[in-house]
C-alpha cells in the first residue's frame, strides 16, 4: 500500500467526454464497405441526392430502433412497436381529419404511443411477465385495436399543414432526418449522461445486483418501454406525413427491422449493452442496402434475402472479433 496508493493522484486519467467505441468503429467500417460496394455497382449511388434519400428512407426505422435500443439495453424487447405506431397513426389521422389543431393531434398521437409503452412496461415491471411474451401479446392486441377503431379502413385526407411538417425540408434537409437526429442526440444524452441511462445499463447488465444497489428497477424498465412507445408513435407520424393517409395495418414487421438495426449497432439481446451511434449506423446500413438494391432493380425477394444475410454476417463478425468470453 505504499507506492500504489500514491500513484493515482499523479496519473489521474482524464474523463473521456465522447467515447467512440471500437464496436461503433466496426459498424462504421461495415457501412463504408457497403457504401463502397454499391458506389462501384450503381452509378449515382453516392450522389448527394441519393445520400439524402438513404437518410430519409432510414429515418423511420432509426426512430423505432432508438427506442428499441433502450429497451434491449434494459434487458427487454419490444415487439409491439408496429401496432403501437398503427394505433397512434389512425388516432392522429382521425383527429386531424376531424379538424383538431395540428399540435394537439400530434400530442394525442404521441400520448397514445406513450400509453401503449406504459402498458407494456407495467406488465413487465409490476406483473413480472417476460418482455417477449408481453409485447407478443400486445403486438396482436394493439393491432386489433387499430383495426377495430378504423373498421379496417384507411383514414384519408390528412391536411397539408401536417404533411409539410413531417414530410418537408428545412435548410435542404428532409424534416424526418432532422427529427430523428434530434431524437438520437437526446437518446445519446439520456444513455450517457443521466442516471436513467446508467440504470438502464445496470438493470440490463445485472438486475439482481442493480436491485441490491438500490436501483429503481420498475421505474427504469417502464421508462424504456414508454420511450419505445413514444418513438413508435413519432415514427408513425413521419409515415402518415409522407403518405397522407393512415392505414390500420401500417408498421407490419417494423419491430424486426428495429431489432436488426440495434443488433447490428452492437446492442446485446442479453441486455446491458448497446450504442445509440451504433444503432443509427445500423439503421443506415439497412437503409443503404435497400436503396442500393432497389436502384439495381433487384427483386424484392432477393432484397429480403440480402437483408437477412447482412444481419447474420454482421453478427458473425461481431462474434468473431469479440473473441471467446
Amino acid at each position: 500500500m505504499t507506492s500504489t496508493s500514491n500513484a493515482p493522484a499523479t496519473s489521474a486519467p482524464t474523463f473521456r467526454r465522447f467515447s467512440f467505441s471500437l464496436r461503433d468503429a466496426g459498424t462504421l467500417i461495415g457501412l463504408i464497405v457497403i457504401m463502397a460496394v454499391f458506389a462501384a455497382l450503381v452509378p449515382g449511388f453516392i450522389s448527394e441526392r441519393n445520400l439524402v434519400n438513404i437518410l430519409q428512407q432510414s429515418s423511420i426505422n432509426a426512430c423505432l430502433a432508438l427506442g428499441m435500443t433502450l429497451v434491449i439495453i434494459s434487458g427487454g424487447i419490444d415487439l409491439s412497436v408496429g401496432p403501437t405506431a398503427a394505433i397512434s397513426a389512425v388516432v392522429t389521422a382521425s383527429l386531424l381529419v376531424a379538424g383538431t389543431p395540428i399540435p394537439l393531434a400530434i400530442l394525442a398521437g404521441l400520448g397514445v404511443g406513450v400509453l401503449c409503452g406504459l402498458i407494456n412496461g407495467g406488465l413487465v415491471a409490476y406483473v413480472g411477465l417476460q418482455p417477449f411474451i408481453v409485447t407478443l401479446g400486445t403486438l396482436s392486441t394493439y393491432r386489433a385495436i387499430a383495426l377495430i377503431y378504423t373498421g379496417g379502413n384507411p383514414v384519408l385526407g390528412i391536411p397539408p399543414g401536417f404533411r409539410s411538417l413531417f414530410n418537408g425540408n428545412l435548410f435542404g434537409i428532409p424534416t424526418p432526418v432532422l427529427i430523428v437526429a434530434v431524437v438520437a442526440i437526446a437518446a445519446w444524452i439520456l444513455l450517457k449522461k443521466t442516471p436513467i441511462g446508467e440504470y438502464l445499463m445496470a438493470v440490463g447488465g445485472n438486475e439482481e445486483a442493480a436491485y441490491v444497489a438500490g436501483v429503481p428497477i420498475a421505474r427504469t424498465k417502464i421508462t424504456a418501454y414508454v420511450i419505445s412507445g413514444g418513438l413508435a408513435a413519432l415514427a408513425s407520424l413521419i409515415l402518415i406525413g409522407r403518405l397522407g393517409a393512415a392505414e390500420p395495418i401500417l408498421g407490419n414487421l417494423w419491430e424486426l427491422d428495429a431489432i436488426a438495426a440495434a443488433a447490428i449497432g452492437g446492442a446485446s439481446l442479453m441486455g446491458g449493452k448497446g450504442s445509440i451511434l451504433g444503432t443509427i449506423l445500423g439503421a443506415i446500413i439497412l437503409g443503404a442496402m435497400r436503396n442500393g438494391l432497389t436502384l439495381m432493380n433487384v427483386q424484392a425477394f432477393y432484397q429480403l434475402l440480402a437483408t437477412g444475410l447482412i444481419i447474420l454476417v454482421a453478427m458473425m463478425i461481431d462474434r468473431a472479433t469479440r473473441g471467446r468470453e
Binding site: 442516471p195 446508467e198 445496470a202 447488465g205 445486483a209 441490491v212 444497489a213 446491458g272 449493452k273
Partner: peptide
C-alpha cells in the same frame, strides 16, 4: 450475481447506489 454490473466501469459500479447525489438537473 448480486454485486457487480459486469460491463460497466468500476467508477460507475462504485457510484451506482448514490447516482442521485452525483446528479443535478437530471444529469450526472
Amino acid at each position: 450475481r448480486e454485486g457487480i454490473i459486469p460491463l460497466r466501469p468500476v467508477a460507475i459500479n462504485m457510484a451506482l447506489a448514490s447516482l442521485g447525489s452525483f446528479s443535478s438537473g437530471g444529469m450526472i
